[in-house]
Every structure is written in C-alpha cells, then in structure tokens.
C-alpha cells in the first residue's frame, strides 16, 4: 500500500472562549481538519489572541500577546482558528500592531498570511466541497462581524451546510447586523448591547428555525444567553459542531443536558 499523502501541518489556535466554554468546538475543528487530510497540533503556549487588551487601548499588552502567539505558531504551514474574530485579529491586526518593531514585523506578516478562519480555510484553501454529517433540523445562520467584514466569510459555511444531510437552511433577516456582543462592549454598555441582541433574537424567532449557528463563540454565548433568558427553544451551536457531526456529543449552548 502506498504511503498516505502527508497533508499540511496545521496549528490550531483554540481561542480562549472555545477553551473555556465550548471545548467541543475545538474537537470539531480537529475532526474537520483531520478529515480534510491535515495534521493538527495544538501548541500549549497559547492563551488569548490579545483582543481584549487591543480593543481596550492597552497596546503594550496586546503586542506582548501577539508576540507570544506568533512564536507559538510560526512553525506551522497554516494557523486555523474556529473564530472569525480571533482569526481577524491575527491576520489583519497583528501586522499593524507590530509594524514598528523591525524584529517582529516580518514574523507577524508571516503568521498573518498563514492564518485562517476554520470554515473558510476548509473551503477556500483545502477545496473542501462537502462534509459527511447529518443534522435533522431547520438551520439559520448569523454572520459574525469580523469574519464577514475582515475575512469575507459568508458563502463558505452556507456551502458546507448545504451538504449536511437532513439540514434545511433558512436565511436570517439582518444576518449581517452585529448581535451586540462586541467583547467588553456588552458589559460596558449593557443596555445598548441588550437592544441589539433583542433584535437579533427576534429575527431568529421570525425564521421559525430550530437551530441557530454562527462561527464565533462570543456571539453565540450572547445570542444563546438572550434566547435562553426568553425561554426560547431554539438550539444554538457553533457551525463546526454541525459540520463535524459532533453535535450529538454535547447539549446546545445554554441548554441543560438531556
């Protein structure tokens, strides 16, 4: 038998929210990447991409965390992130953040160019056109802001979801409007954030879908938190859980174990 072709070596940037709240998303990412022929590693030296510091104006801490992330990931063929927001941070903001540091600017650019949001990596880089999964429900999809506007993630998740057996897809009205999470925004301006997530929840309800998916755990915690507070039966999951077929392994976000 011929030696199996060795796929690209991928470093998984787990993200702090997946690590803490939703490890299943990490395993879903690993499964999708391995199924597509990648060798996946998870560097132990990773923590957070630095966005909380960056968006709070603490440039020094953000730079520090950027350097650590770069050092942990620069040896991989690709860096893959199950979040458009954190992928955008590394891909779009690290080079700007370290532009004035002659030692680190090239390293930042090197890692940035190799960093991708999970689903767009599968479709755009690996050429994946379908997944082997089943999920029996009507699904609607929220386009998280950074993935959408910084990385152009829009068609890729829809394309792969179309290949999941049992899925009926229905578009979410105002799918491209922010859910109101915004990192620390949601606790700094809770009333405004609430208005935004109320609108999002109302739009979700209007679709009649049984499941809401998105590609960022931050947005999902926010939307699920609102839906659950309202007593909504809508199931909320990260898109990778459905694409990988791991949705049965854990209850939806914010729901009790069955």
């Amino acid at each position: 038998m011929a030696e199996p072709r060795r796929g690209p070596r991928v470093g998984l940037f787990v993200t702090c929210l997946v690590d803490l709240f939703r490890p299943t998303v990490g395993f879903a990412a690993v499964k999708l990447l391995e199924d597509a022929g990648c060798t996946v590693e998870v560097p132990r030296d990773q923590t957070c991409c630095g966005q909380p510091a960056y968006n709070a104006g603490d440039r020094a801490t953000a730079q520090d965390l950027a350097r650590r992330t770069i050092a942990a990931f620069e040896g991989f063929d690709h860096v893959v992130v199950p979040s458009g927001s954190c992928a955008g941070m590394i891909r779009k903001h690290y080079p700007a953040l370290l532009a004035d540091d002659p030692a680190w600017a090239p390293r930042a650019q090197h890692v940035a160019a190799r960093t991708h949001e999970l689903v767009s990596f599968l479709v755009d880089v690996l050429g994946v056109t379908w997944v082997d999964a089943r999920y029996d429900d009507t699904i609607t999809y929220h386009d998280s802001c950074s993935g959408l506007r910084e990385l152009g993630v829009k068609a890729q998740p829809r394309r792969l979801l179309a290949s999941v057996r049992g899925v009926k897809f229905t578009e979410l009205p105002d799918a491209e409007v922010c859910c109101g999470f915004g990192g620390t925004f949601c606790v700094k301006y809770p009333d405004i954030s609430n208005r935004m997530v109320e609108d999002k929840a109302a739009n979700v309800a209007s679709t009649g879908a049984g499941t809401l998916l998105a590609g960022d755990v931050g947005c999902l915690l926010n939307i699920a938190g609102k839906l659950k507070r309202q007593g909504s039966p809508v199931k909320v999951r990260h898109v990778a859980e459905v694409l990988s077929g791991l949705a049965d392994e854990t209850p939806p976000i914010g729901d009790a174990a069955r």
């Binding site: 787990v14 690590d19 709240f21 939703r22 490890p23 990490g26 009333d191 954030s193 997530v197 938190g225």
Partner: peptide
C-alpha cells in the same frame, strides 16, 4: 463587573473542562 450581562441575558454554562486539558 459582569452584572450587565446577566441583567439582560443568561450566561451559558461552560461544558465543564477546558479544551486544553481534554486535548
């Protein structure tokens, strides 16, 4: 600090163990 979150919505509970420890 996080009361602004729970004033308006629930906080979905973590699954219980981190990805790093499970990995």
């Amino acid at each position: 600090m996080l009361s602004g979150w729970t004033e308006h919505r629930d906080l979905p509970a973590p699954e219980g163990r981190t990805f790093q420890e499970l990995w």
